[in-house]
Amino acid sequence: MINELFRWDWFFDHLPDIWELTLEHLRLTAIAVVIGFAISFPLGVLAYRHRRTYGPITAVTGILYTIPSLALFMMLGPVTGTLSVTTAEIGLVSYTLLIIIRNTVAGFRGVPEDVKEAARGMGYTARQSLWKVELPLAVPAIVAGVRIATVTTIGLVTVTSLIGHGGLGIYILQGLSRLDSTLTLTGAVLSMFLAVSADRILVIVERRSTPWAQTRARAS
């Protein structure tokens, strides 16, 4: 067992590898969140427009959410190829669904009734009201969902190291098997750093995409 908590010389010797794995980590995350959003957003809108579909949609995605990541990755192995990226991505995507769907629906439901009434009064059709009035007001909640999904995914990517991916999670796994805290800390601290940075970037995206909210905040 290595007794030093953190060996800086190892860290600096491996900077190029660490950079490679960081990019890999981001790639796995970005693909999962983009696909997750592409599936969740329409489902969220559907669940909002047709209340009866909300139950079944959240029930199915809820079950996907409760399957332990460890089991899901290993279970998909025989079906989609043990070491394929598809296996990792299916798992990662399935965990983003519930989070984004719930927030999308919550965002739309949070639009005040009188705002919708005013839109109707001005002659907007239901569809126009949805896209031009309700969607912009739901953006903060939807982005909040994407933020949580992103942060969660960055954490889960580390578990995919068990099926040969994992980005920075590979260091966590190696650290665990060699009982070397330098490797574990490198993987853990950097993936946490990625999560926090991604979260901050998404907050900026949210502020940019809802300029009226900033104006209002300044005015009051």
């Binding site: 954490g155 999670g169 665990l176 009982l179 070397d180 805290s181 993987g187 853990a188």
Partner: peptide
Amino acid sequence: LGRALPSFAVMAFFFPM
């Protein structure tokens, strides 16, 4: 912020300890 901390990593860190 703790939400960003992967459980897998926490466990891997405390196990040698």
